[in-house]
Design a protein around this nucleic acid. Sequence first.
DNA 1: AAACCTCCCGAAAAGGCTTTCTGTGACAGT
DNA 2: ACTGTCACAGAAAGCCTTTTCGGGAGGTTT
Lengths: 340, 340
Amino acid sequence: MASGETPRTATLTDVARLAGVSIATASKAINGRAQVRAETRTRVLEAAEQLSFAPNAVARGLLQGRTGTVGLLTSDLEGRFSIPVLMGAEDAFGAGQVSVFLCDARGDAIREQHHIRALLSRRVEGLIVVGSRTDPRPPLIGDLPVPVVYAYAPSENPADISITADNVSAGGLAIDHLLACGRRRIAHVTGDASYAAAQDRSRGAERAIKEAGLDLVGGRTFFGSWSEGWGRGVASMILDQYPDVDGFFCGSDQIARGVLDSLRESGKDVPRSISVIGFDDWQVLTTNTRPQLTSVDMNLEQVGRIAARRLFEAIEGKAASGIEELPCRIVTRESSVPVP
Amino acid sequence: MASGETPRTATLTDVARLAGVSIATASKAINGRAQVRAETRTRVLEAAEQLSFAPNAVARGLLQGRTGTVGLLTSDLEGRFSIPVLMGAEDAFGAGQVSVFLCDARGDAIREQHHIRALLSRRVEGLIVVGSRTDPRPPLIGDLPVPVVYAYAPSENPADISITADNVSAGGLAIDHLLACGRRRIAHVTGDASYAAAQDRSRGAERAIKEAGLDLVGGRTFFGSWSEGWGRGVASMILDQYPDVDGFFCGSDQIARGVLDSLRESGKDVPRSISVIGFDDWQVLTTNTRPQLTSVDMNLEQVGRIAARRLFEAIEGKAASGIEELPCRIVTRESSVPVP
DNA sequence: AAACCTCCCGAAAAGGCTTTCTGTGACAGT
DNA sequence: ACTGTCACAGAAAGCCTTTTCGGGAGGTTT
């Protein structure tokens, strides 16, 4: 049983010869076409089995003009937001008969261009472009011969197909949750104001609090950076300046962790006297804080799956362009409970 | 300039016709073969440009028997260890002319089998199997017609090609670093004892401390779980039972974070009176702790890159099988400084 | 002037598969 | 006995490219 004999993968010709039929018949037998006697079919199938024949998808693709492949173009693989989207897409395709080419442009337009060329020459049937921020990105340049779907980061061109998370509504959700917990003096601390995500969530939050006839603590959103340090600092500042604050909506779980640490050190009781909610639902953070952190989950895998589905539809010609914003959901944990 | 006209991607025939030459000549011109007059070549190139012709890699692959594709088979994409390995591999291949099929088996053997079949039918030239734990995994079943490289999780079969991180040496590195900081009473707290990673690091640590003529605090490794909670708990226990402890080697950054929190709350001064080192060098944890955490980096991207390189060599026939263990490195931060 | 090169270009085959069309034998109907 | 029908098998074309080989045009040598 020596392996590595370079047994040259069997071709349809080999199968046909072994079964004593023509390649045409062998093909029909294997693909379940009619026009083959049952007895002949089993003979072919046995031959195929014996040679462990696997139809050459390359040849088939060439013939039919359909390769059954798509390209997944990420702008950066480190990004913890791209990964779940990518997983969802891979999942949706893998379940079907589609294989996925993975390309990481590393945020470099040149590399992106290079990858696109390679993918097109491999005749992918479509492209999913996964961004690492929710800020709209410039569409792929050139008139591509295949449909493109933008995931997480929508395209700047509204005529393109984009799937992203509804950050504005998510901001509202978070505030509504805190209100439902009986909180009235809610602060919103978030990250870098240059991020669309920060702006969108803030807008949603402000709208929701207004609708409740209230105002955010400090009358505004506290923008800063996406870090624990910022969360710690701004929390102690707010605590100092607005001692009656009873709720924190944080723009990320990292910020929330900083806020929680700060509240702990100030002797505040979370969730009894103050509720805290984070954003991203990043397990390593939410389940290790004390108390565990309620957070907004963007359902990124779902974003990926829907993107895959939309790409599929576009390939089939049933395209519906525009930006599709998928709802987020709250994952409730210990840091926010209703006040009696 | 209406897009979406389904302009049927140009073929070599189209280019040849436009340039007024035969397809043979067009091919030679485009591929830089000799035997084409310069004037003719430019004419062809212009035609190709005008039609935005991209050679059909599928057809070329069929003809040459080389597809220029490889399969990347991960057992779970969530795993934060698989991702960097995968990035490294993608990087190494992407730089060349090789495209990567991404498949996620989700830890399911059936799905894995299904993906392998699909990949083989697409005639990938090789496979990289990326695991999510360092425990050896069963090799892919069946005599595959292409070389396979196992990354991060080595194959149980020593005749296979495996690339992983040298966890035993890494354990020694960590201890040596603490010793170099002037520490003598070092505790090793780590995660689940059923993980090879935990065992290996522990073995390396014990060997290193013995070589220094010392013993670990408590005379053994404290196995537990890979969580902050375990780190917090075990640290306060150790502090209580062995008050002279002056160094913690933690099996993961999460555990280290718990340890740091615990030390902080006990009023211990890190790094003045106690040094702490983590493992994994997971940025979100190491740079947000107070003080920032020294950690062991497994160079996972490098694992991926080397895996890609080895696969390449195996494809070319220059295979060197066996387990290759790549060295880890210490990333020094504030939590460990030399005692004067 | 015949023989011989050199330069370019094109015809054709090959790669593995699917599909259409043609062909053959068996059988039923008249 | 002849025609029509049916079930099944095979021949061949086609997908797109690369590569080999042959050949025509023009120039050089003897």
